[in-house]
Amino acid sequence: MPIQVRIPVQLRTLTNGEEVVSASGKSVLEIIEDIERKYPGVKDRICEADGKVRRFVNIFVNAEDIRFLDNLQTPISDDDEVSIIPAIAGG
């Protein structure tokens, strides 16, 4: 079953302005790859060329940071919500 993914403003030009998109997959990586199929360019903005999550981007599954779970291999189940949170600059 597809789950909901919150897209930050920085990436919404790639998702036709959508703030929440649905995606399917058994892990965070599969979710990102599914989003990439629908909205090409997103993965490159989240991950480095070597596949690791960029250092200024944080991905949470529900309320937990994936760096302290299983990173991109963190498993996803039906009711999970994934949020992509970059730091905010404004003041």
């Binding site: 250092r55 200024f56 944080n58 940071d65 970059p86 730091a87 905010i88 404004g90």
Partner: peptide
């Protein structure tokens, strides 16, 4: 601990480009 490095310039919305 949370944000390991600065994002590159030119990608983050600011109050002067995106409003607030």
């Amino acid at each position: 601990c949370i944000f390991e490095s600065l994002p590159p310039p030119g990608i983050s919305p600011t109050c002067d480009t995106a409003g607030v």
